[in-house]
Design a protein around this nucleic acid. Sequence first.
DNA 1: TTGACTGCAAAACTTTTGCAAAAAC
DNA 2: GTTTTTGCAAAAGTTTTGCAGTCAA
Lengths: 153, 153
Amino acid sequence: MVAFHDPSDENALTKRFRDAGIQVTPQRLTIADTLFQCEKHISAEELYLQVREKNPRIGLATIYRTLHILKEKGLVEEHRFNDEFSRYEVKDSTHHDHLICIECGKVVEFGQPVIEHLQDLAAEEKDFTIVSHKLEIYGICKDCRDRKAMKKR
Amino acid sequence: MVAFHDPSDENALTKRFRDAGIQVTPQRLTIADTLFQCEKHISAEELYLQVREKNPRIGLATIYRTLHILKEKGLVEEHRFNDEFSRYEVKDSTHHDHLICIECGKVVEFGQPVIEHLQDLAAEEKDFTIVSHKLEIYGICKDCRDRKAMKKR
DNA sequence: TTGACTGCAAAACTTTTGCAAAAAC
DNA sequence: GTTTTTGCAAAAGTTTTGCAGTCAA
């Protein structure tokens, strides 16, 4: 979880930024570095707090502005599970969907290539050109199920 | 779109409220009536404006409070397409998913029973008890596609 | 040098809450 | 008569914006 700050990462990041046509600044590097190293699905506020530890002079507005850019350039994805605020995750090449526990909020990822085909059918019927999809399955995870069973005596 | 106010609807609504264990008030009837007659996926603000025309003394807070109750009792569903605020739709017995145009924001519904089976597989693997799911497919609708093709000369 | 970015604070926007008055049961 | 609901206004929470100063190229 606590990763050492490896300068090589930063070089790799710099390259990614340039490739994506994103101007490189120390703030953006810090933000992206934190985001890329963090566990999945972080909120802007959480990211802000973590970034703050590395550089307290970075403001929340910069977090948001950077997230917008990263999203626009396709490096991160924005999610809104349930009724909450936005959460962000690094976009990797393999698309996946999410299982969300309605009790504890835990988010588990799963791959589901079959859906790709399914959505094509649906979209074709309605004459849509598909760009992306989001499948969120809401349920109760094992831990919460067990806890509930326990409570009932 | 503009529906006449049929008192029989209100009686039906009253019955639905009682069946669901919701206390009946004029405000709630007006709000639910408006929501039930409206086109799909209305926002709280839009609903407020429409309700206001029937009874200007109803406040926005009451809209939100009523929506919470209706949602809790399973009469309406809340959605958060894209990055927008919440939108609400009347819940009917047949589950459906949504195609959302990323250009114009249009939302089209489609039924997709196969997904029910698919999600079972995914959830079983991760040991989740499924409660519900949301599949949102983002793309470009025919109109927007045509418009874009036109613009390119 | 010049245009893009940052930090701060203030604004914007959606949603929630406290409270006294009013209505429902 | 007690409990629940309402309307208003104010608060809360997340996200955006204006602007003067700073930095990257």
